[in-house]
Design a binder for these strands. Structure first.
Length: 602
DNA sequence: TTAGGGTTAG
């Protein structure tokens, strides 16, 4: 509707001076007038400021307000729209805004501003700009709030971060004073577009220009740098806050600890945990959940769980999820299930992620039946699986060699209206290839390429190239590899090259493998340990000691070493006298241990 | 009555 209709309004401002001067008495009359015709319940909801209102109730209230005569003022409508916008139901706000239009309820600058915000949050910038134009035509000058909303729209939009930066400059030129929200929005936008150094620079410029960054500003920057592994920078920012006498809170500390843990500085994280406590900042459920999720390999995770219970910090679904995931990763499935039962007994409702974690754990442990039982348990609770649930089960059945049930789950997924994604396709293709049904995979692959809109990624092609190579169809694989290079839509990665090189080696096409390796070094992805090991084994099997030695040298110089199968091959060749002991020493330091051991019979 | 936004799980 907005697409064809330009919203109209009366430019009159509602608050009249005489009305204000008459004070409370007149205000009371207005109050009565505003709510007459509404049921008592709704009057109460409006009076209480719409806190904790549910979406359905809000929409019903809108209907009542629209029907009641005389109608409540536009201010009441704007409060309601704002409450729905806070629930992030932007599409609902937009459609109610359209309804107001149809019912002849005139918008004002606040409702326009809310609508601009909603269109921006939905990345529908053109509509936001159209409303802005309409608003200005009616004589409303956009204020900093409206402009910040618009800025947020530019920041969230895929390609318009430069426009966002330009908008701020324009705002200043037009005499607007940017505020902390302006800067925070722009900083957040820069991070969304991975422009880390510009975001950090903006924080510094803020300080230079005399704007005091707030906890949100620091939090956003610290989070942005931590997620990208720059934990040193985060710790420096923490020091800077201290220097500015700004007290970091539990969120800032938790964010840095999470970053440290995820980037393998667990001890630093635990130090920071002590530092935080010594400053009297109490860890909360986020702090504990984050630490537990990072420390699942260690006993500390379970200890931390007990500690938080002792300190009366209530675990959430996410805390339990981290613990359950930890047990699953260690294949301690019974304990995972016990934890699941514990969380349910404590009244913490499992969500789809919890189920997916457990289902994944059982599938990985080749217990697909138990995984299916959990899946049925979900239905009994009135929950339905999402794309991840189905992907996990399909993969589980394929890994158990059960193509029929894998297909069955896929069919169920489609009939239940759960949208398959690229991962689903990759799992299906890989499953059929690995279960000796390349032909079936090829049919699906062709359909996907010709008849569907599904975006295939490099993993899809890697799966097919590997499938073809393993089935001995190296020429077909090579055609597919070359078609990738020709089309240029998806770029071959190191795995693509490794798979193809391995395919050539497997067919004894060593020259082709070498040629591809050279091509890779000139104009492709960086070779990794797998590339070298594949080639080294091929050359060793061919008895080409010189080339093998050369490759080993090159591999070691790049910081890689022989993998298990290369070491085992060399070990065997050493035993039957085809190789000299020095070869093994060349491969890796850990390989020397094998030299000391007696040769196996193989 | 309008805006931004920092922490946790598959």
């Amino acid at each position: 509707m907005w697409r064809v209709m330009v919203i109209s309004s009366t430019p009159k401002r509602f608050v009249h001076r005489s009305l204000v001067q008459r004070g409370n008495f007149y205000g009371f009359r207005c109050w009565i007038r505003a709510f007459s015709g509404l049921s008592d319940d709704y009057r109460e909801i409006l009076r209480s400021g719409l806190r904790d209102i549910k979406l359905d109730d809000a929409v019903d209230l809108f209907g009542e307000m629209a029907k009641s005569r005389p109608r409540p003022s536009i201010i009441e409508f704007s409060k309601l729209l704002s409450a729905i916008a806070k629930m992030k139901k932007f599409d609902v706000v937009i459609s109610l805004g359209e309804k107001m239009q149809m019912l002849g309820i005139a918008h004002n600058d606040y409702t326009y501003s809310i609508l601009i915000n909603c269109f921006c949050r939905r990345s529908e910038l053109s509509f936001a700009l159209a409303i802005l134009g309409k608003m200005m035509k009616l004589g409303y000058k956009p204020d900093i709030v409206t402009l910040n909303s618009l800025l947020n729209g530019f920041c969230r939009h895929g390609k318009r971060i430069s426009d966002a930066v330009a908008l701020v400059d324009q705002m200043v030129e037009m005499g607007y004073q940017p505020n902390t929200v302006t800067f925070n929005t722009l900083i957040h936008g820069l991070f969304l577009h991975n422009r880390v150094s510009e975001a950090v620079a903006l924080l510094e410029r803020m300080v230079v220009k005399g704007y005091q960054p707030d906890l949100i500003t620091y939090g956003a920057v610290i989070n942005g740098v931590c997620k990208r592994g720059h934990t040193d920078l985060a710790l420096n920012l923490l020091k800077k806050m201290e220097a500015e006498r700004m007290e970091a809170d539990v969120v800032i500390y938790s964010t840095i600890m999470d970053g440290l843990c995820k980037h393998k500085h667990v001890n630093d994280a635990l130090d920071l945990f002590s530092e935080m406590e010594s400053k009297g900042i109490r860890p909360d459920v986020y702090t504990y959940s984050s630490l537990i999720s990072c420390l699942w390999k260690l006993l500390e995770a379970e200890e931390l769980y007990e500690e938080m219970i002792r300190r009366s910090i209530d675990p959430t679904t996410i805390t339990y999820g981290s613990l359950i995931n930890g047990f699953c990763l260690q294949d301690r499935l019974e304990e995972a299930k016990q934890m699941f039962a514990l969380m349910v007994s404590k009244g913490c409702l499992p969500d789809v992620v919890i189920y997916n974690t457990l289902i994944n754990g059982f599938c990985k442990s080749k217990r697909v039946d138990d995984a299916m039982e959990l899946f049925h348990g979900m239905s009994r609770r009135g929950m339905s699986g999402d794309t991840v649930t189905h992907n996990t089960l399909i993969k589980g059945f394929f890994q158990a060699g059960d193509c029929e049930n894998a297909q069955q789950v896929f069919k169920q997924m489609v009939s239940a209206g759960v949208p398959p994604d690229t991962m689903t396709c990759n799992i299906l293709l890989d499953g059929f290839c690995k279960n000796g049904r390349l032909e079936k995979a090829l049919v699906i692959f062709q359909d996907l390429q010709q008849k569907s809109e599904m975006a295939l990624n490099i993993v899809t092609y890697n799966i097919m190239i590997e499938g073809m190579c393993k089935a001995g169809k190296v020429e077909d694989a090579w055609d597919l590899f070359n078609s990738l290079c020709l089309k240029g839509v998806v770029k071959p990665d190191v795995v693509t090259y490794n798979t193809m090189i391995s395919g050539f080696c497997g067919k004894g096409l060593k020259q082709e493998a070498d040629a591809l390796f050279r091509e890779m070094k000139e104009d492709g992805p960086l070779p990794n340990d797998c590339t070298y090991n594949t080639l080294i084994r091929a050359h060793l099997r061919d008895g080409d000691k010189d080339s093998s030695a050369e490759l080993i040298k090159e591999m070691r110089s790049r910081g890689f070493c022989g993998d298990a199968s290369t070491i085992s091959l060399v070990g065997n060749m050493l035993c039957d006298g085809r190789l000299h002991k020095s070869f093994l020493e060349m491969l890796s330091s850990s390989a020397r241990e094998i030299v000391e051991q007696p040769c196996s019979d193989q």
